[in-house]
Simulated assay, not measured.
Amino acid sequence: MSNWKTAFRSFYYETADNPENIVLSRSHTALLVIDIQNTYLEPDSDPREAARWQPFYDRMNTIVIPNNARLLEWARGEGIEVMFARIACQTQDGRDRSLSQKKPGFNYLLLPKDGDDSQIVPQLSPQGDEIVVTKTTDSALTGTNLRLILRNIGITDIIVSGIFTDQCVSSTVRSLADESFGVVVVHDACAAATDELHEKELEIINMIYCHVVGMDELPGLLAPQSSAWPTDPGS
């Protein structure tokens, strides 16, 4: 049966030995939820485009958002630092955006920081003093003071979830790895525009920049202590 040690192997790691066990310290680990914002759940006004994106909307509403809600509940219960990243510009006309967000096409993003479109979806709202970094870049590390925040708090390992797997998630993961943070990506709490893009990007980044794990494997990576998922009230 496939597990995080054997799944999502690219050509580079097809024959590599299995990695060592991951042990995450609660006090030195953060959960970073990336870019799950209202704008990405709004169907396109063009019916053809809306239909083309319907599998993405379905994955977001039935898998990614519910799984991130579980992740947040679990992390908060375990005392793991919870953080969010979102795309938002400081100006109304977006003149402070990076070049990639000014280019025509899908990546053209004009999301003023106070607009409803730029807010994190209500199901995953930050609580208390949980940190939200605002970026106009793909990488949450490159375009913010997140690096300083993580160092100040004493974080060494980051659990990453969110969208899009092949864009902002991947860029953030690579930046974190280059800064020598340990990174774990939760594959069933992420999405790309298509499942094919999602899975291919996970293969590309796995074992080089991060380790890709499933939701149900994550509690077992914590240093010994009670780490079971919260009990489902409906069970």
Rank of each mutant, 00 (worst) to 15 (best):
D188C: 12
R147T: 04
A193L: 15
A75F: 03
F84Y: 12
L72V: 06
L146S: 03
I80N: 04
Q90G: 08
R97G: 04
Q119A: 14
R174F: 06
S98E: 03
N145D: 15
L197A: 15
L72Y: 02
S100N: 10
S100P: 00
E78P: 03
F181G: 00
V183G: 01
T172I: 02
L150H: 01
R70S: 11
C168V: 02
G162E: 07
D166Q: 13
A85M: 07
C190R: 07
G154W: 03
S171P: 00
S98Y: 03
V121Y: 05
G105N: 10
V133Q: 01
G154E: 06
I80P: 03
L197F: 13
I159R: 01
R76Y: 07
P112A: 11
F181Q: 00
T165V: 10
P104M: 09
L124H: 06
P104V: 07
L141A: 05
F84L: 03
I163G: 02
D117M: 13
G105Y: 05
E73I: 06
W74V: 04
T134L: 03
Q167P: 00
D166G: 12
T134W: 01
G128R: 11
T172W: 00
G143L: 02
Q167M: 11
H187N: 15
A191E: 08
G77V: 09
T142C: 06
R70H: 12
T165A: 15
T172C: 02
E199N: 13
I153F: 06
V82C: 08
A140S: 13
T165K: 07
L150C: 02
I159V: 15
K102Q: 13
H198Y: 08
V183F: 05
S170H: 12
D129A: 13
L109F: 12
T134G: 01
R151C: 04
D116Y: 15
L150W: 01
D195R: 15
V186E: 04
R151S: 08
G77T: 11
A140G: 13
Q90P: 06
M83T: 06
R95C: 15
L197V: 07
R86E: 00
